[in-house]
């Protein structure tokens, strides 16, 4: 086991180091000894090597690393989009790695929400319709769904762009729609994979501030991969991933 793994075992931010009477708050996300390799033999690519990490509830963690360092792989495994070759991941008390496909679908539907670097919007749907997708998965009544979509679009400042399709929005606007969609089903964990990767710095900062704000407002946990120092500064803490291993940074 390499040394950097210890960085991932850091205590939950804000919690006393010890001596408190309050029972310890279980982490929202627990990653233990996760390994993921693509390919085999000499062509094998070790995307993650024995990664362990805890993320406390309400914490916004910046996952920092260069392209190819394994950030997306780790986020996908945490979000149930991918499976590790070894190790375990627990999200909100749910052992993700042992879930079958239906369980993973339920996890993404009820517990976890994603914000992708490429925004991940369905191009033929309007902004409001994109935001409404998670609500439809929960079969919310149309009136409630419309109300919630309106609130979220207002929250991200796109109330006037509800009927526009992604192709008619700027990159920042699209990402804000993606954030609104991620928030729609009130997830407990927000996973954002380089949400500002395709945005200019000013827009990226605004998006990151938005994420910061909604995480605080909604009381959710967030893991955001980025390599932008400004974005890192907005996080509660940063964990560094280098060649598939967590380091102290």
């Amino acid at each position: 086991m390499s040394e950097p793994q210890r960085a991932g075992t850091s205590p939950v931010p804000g919690a006393p180091d010890g001596g408190s009477d309050a029972p310890p708050v279980p982490p929202m996300v627990t990653v233990r000894g996760v390994r993921r390799t693509y390919g085999a033999g000499r062509a094998a690519v070790h995307a993650l090597r024995d990664v362990s990490l805890d993320v406390a509830p309400g914490e916004l963690v910046a996952l920092v690393g260069r392209s190819g360092s394994g950030k997306t792989t780790l986020l996908n495994i945490v979000g149930g989009l991918d499976r590790p070759d070894a190790g375990s991941v627990t999200v909100g008390g749910t052992e993700v790695t042992s879930l079958d496909e239906a369980g993973q679908v339920a996890l993404r539907r009820d517990l976890v929400a994603f914000v992708f670097q490429t925004f991940g919007l369905v191009p033929v749907l309007s902004a409001a319709e994109n935001v409404g997708v998670p609500l439809r998965l929960r079969r919310l009544a149309p009136a409630d769904r419309e109300r919630r979509v309106g609130l979220l679009l207002d929250l991200v400042g796109l109330g006037d762009h509800a009927d526009q399709r992604p192709g008619e929005l700027s990159g920042g606007q699209q990402q804000r729609v993606a954030i609104a969609r991620a928030l729609a089903a009130s997830p407990r964990l927000l996973i954002a994979d380089e949400p500002t990767g395709q945005l200019d710095s000013e827009t990226g900062l605004a998006v990151m501030a938005l994420i910061r704000a909604v995480v605080e407002a909604e009381g959710m946990t967030a893991i955001v991969s980025t390599h932008d120092p400004v974005m890192i500064a907005l996080a509660d803490r940063a964990v560094h991933l280098v060649d598939g291993q967590l380091t102290d940074g």
């Binding site: 979000g79 989009l81 496909e101 239906a102 679908v105 339920a106 996890l107 993404r108 539907r109 009820d110 994603f114 992708f116 991940g120 919007l121 369905v122 191009p123 997708v133 998670p134 998965l137 969609r181 089903a185």
Partner: peptide, 12 residues
């Protein structure tokens, strides 16, 4: 688009 929908929790 399919991958994104699945990422949102839409089953196959």
């Amino acid at each position: 688009e399919v991958a994104r929908l699945q990422g949102l929790g839409v089953s196959r």
